[in-house]
Design a protein around this nucleic acid. Structure first.
Lengths: 128, 128
DNA sequence: CGGGATCCCTTGCGATACTG
DNA sequence: CAGTATCGCAAGGGATCCCG
């Protein structure tokens, strides 16, 4: 995913599909932002606090991309100190529903995945 | 001495969910593999052909990770020439359903996203 | 407060070549 | 056929400083 720059509007209508969504939404911090902003408008600094480990730079960058894709709306209030709020578009709220489905899958199979990893790693250690 | 829960450091059950799934499954090629293997066992070379642009290295690497997470099963037949087939586990088939939901969202909003991008880029060009 | 600009290390991943 | 090993670039992203 090209993140620093902003080119590429997908060519043929049939080309960009699941992979593109995953690529767009799957950037390390997008999901966190989407979930943090799901309960209504939220300020930049509040997002920063809500998403542990995110850097200021990546928060800005990811927000810009989400805004560009029409997933978040940026509202700036010309006051001092500056106040900027981000909110999700209806489209993003729909996406959130799909993400919740994924979340459910993750919750149900977290143990299975962990177990599979352990077994795999142990077999690997044995044959190494 | 129960290993019921995940060894990876994720605290509350609600904490490590969506982001982890996205991280795991959202690697550039995982989705493609999952979808390509959804219709039954498929050979390495068939996967390579089914996923345009993937390199042999990334196919191998991604398959190993999916196998480690218990999402695909690798079956090797000791014949000449070598024959290896990959198939999805039931868990992965469930995941596929969630991915299809995402796919639906992508299909429905592809136009909106493209439009949003165009508008954003034009506004940006104007203020640059 | 909400960013933009820069520096720079780390990682992903493609290209290529070799093996059982 | 189905991989493994090595190299090397470019993107990702953290740290830091600056600015309206």
């Amino acid at each position: 995913m090209s993140f620093e720059e902003a080119p590429s509007a997908c060519g043929p209508p049939s080309a960009c599909s699941v992979e593109d969504v995953i690529d767009r939404v799957g950037s390390k911090w997008s999901v966190g932002i989407l979930l943090a902003a799901a309960d209504g408008p939220i300020r930049f600094s509040a997002l920063e606090r809500a998403i542990p480990g995110i850097s200021r730079r990546m928060l800005t960058l990811t927000l810009r991309n989400l805004e560009r894709d029409g997933l978040v709306v940026r509202t700036m209030y010309p006051v001092v100190p500056p106040r900027v709020e981000y909110s999700l578009t209806p489209m993003a709220l729909e996406l959130r529903a799909a993400l919740v489905a994924l979340s459910g899958w993750a919750a149900r199979h977290r143990g299975d995945i962990a177990a599979a990893r352990t077994r795999y790693d142990e077999r690997e250690a044995g044959s190494a």
